[in-house]
Write a protein that binds this DNA or RNA. Structure first.
Lengths: 191, 191
DNA sequence: CGATTCTTTGAAAACAGTCAATCTGTGTGG
DNA sequence: CCACACAGATTGACTGTTTTCAAAGAATCG
């Protein structure tokens, strides 16, 4: 199960076999069944999670009781509530599995130590975070400037590997529209 | 003009007078008149900009020709189009001044060198970027889950130093509503 | 003062949300 | 293997919000 993580780190971050040993020493494997939580509101998100297999989502519960999905994650993506992860404060979010999933967890302090030991890994992380920020800026632009239909198109274009893998009402939540509206938008699409 | 930057770096990033000399050596001061551009679409955003005084905005022109504001910046904030800054690719954004402004510019390669020379500064940057990411996640949550009125309240609460300093139609653009809607929302507020 | 920018207002149209009912497929337990 | 519950998707009718278009009223600047 560490294997796919090793491949990822070798290809994306150019880690050597020696580097990988250091990583493996602090990595904990975890399997999650569909619907199981990785993190619940109030927990501290003290580990970073690499998704080897499966699909997760990160969401908050609004004052109206509805779920608002902030992010999805699939194979080769990282997942944590970074607000809690960085601050050490209790999380306002939940993370759960949308499919049976295989995860690799690293404690924040262990990962920070790895960054010191493997500068390449640190650079890789900085690059990843920059891309995450870009993605979230582009998502903001999409939400503030596009109609529901355009947002759905943008989502499909941006995440072709995700849109047909998660329930429609979750995509609706991610896009900030009601599931009925998204359903109607899709109809026009089929024609 | 470097003085306010020095104070900022001392207080926020704990830089020493020696550190500051290194920083000053690569810092270029620039004044911008209201309405002047710092960056125009197609330019490469190759310098990071510290705002010593004034107010800037970063925006894109949509297909409909309308401006969509992605960020504001005031004293002690940093400004650049980080997508272009990090990738070296031409920017899709514009940055201009909403007030006469005093800026301190550092070239990306100079700043990267500073991070090597002053690890404290690098840590500070990493922390800042993490906060920016959190802020943009919270903004996404606000846009997808709140009404126009609630978003305006959230904006005022989040940025009390900005909301009464920039034109209303720009806040409307930032919030993703029409200026007319924002104007009406504010009316209810006054009662 | 004149020009420009910014803000407000009104009325109609477009859009999205809500409520309620129905339909589908999936999986579970008897 | 069937019956049932459940999650997910769709549809219709209605309501409410937001946009658009057009016009006019403040405010600001040179």
């Amino acid at each position: 199960m560490f294997e796919s993580f090793a491949v990822y780190l070798t290809e994306k971050a150019s880690l050597t076999p020696e580097d990988l040993k250091l990583v493996e020493a602090v990595t904990v494997a975890k399997k999650l069944r569909k619907r199981q939580y990785l993190l619940q509101q109030g927990d501290i998100s003290h580990q970073n999670c690499f998704i080897a297999k499966g699909c997760l989502r990160l969401y908050r519960i609004g004052e109206d009781g509805n779920e608002r999905i902030l992010r999805f994650g699939i194979e080769n993506w990282w997942m944590a509530d970074y607000e809690s992860y960085n601050s050490g404060q209790p999380s306002k979010c939940n993370i759960d599995a949308l499919e049976d999933s295989e995860l690799l967890l690293i404690e924040k302090n262990e990962l920070d130590a790895l960054y010191k030991a493997i500068p390449k890994l640190h650079n890789f992380r900085v690059m990843l975070e920059a891309k995450s920020f870009d993605a979230s800026q582009n998502r903001i632009l999409s939400i503030i400037s596009e109609t529901a239909e355009q947002r759905y198109e943008t989502f499909i274009r941006s995440y072709p590997e995700i849109f047909n893998r998660v329930p429609l009402h979750m995509i609706a939540s991610y896009l900030g529209v009601s599931r009925e509206t998204l359903s109607r938008v899709r109809q026009q699409y089929v024609r």
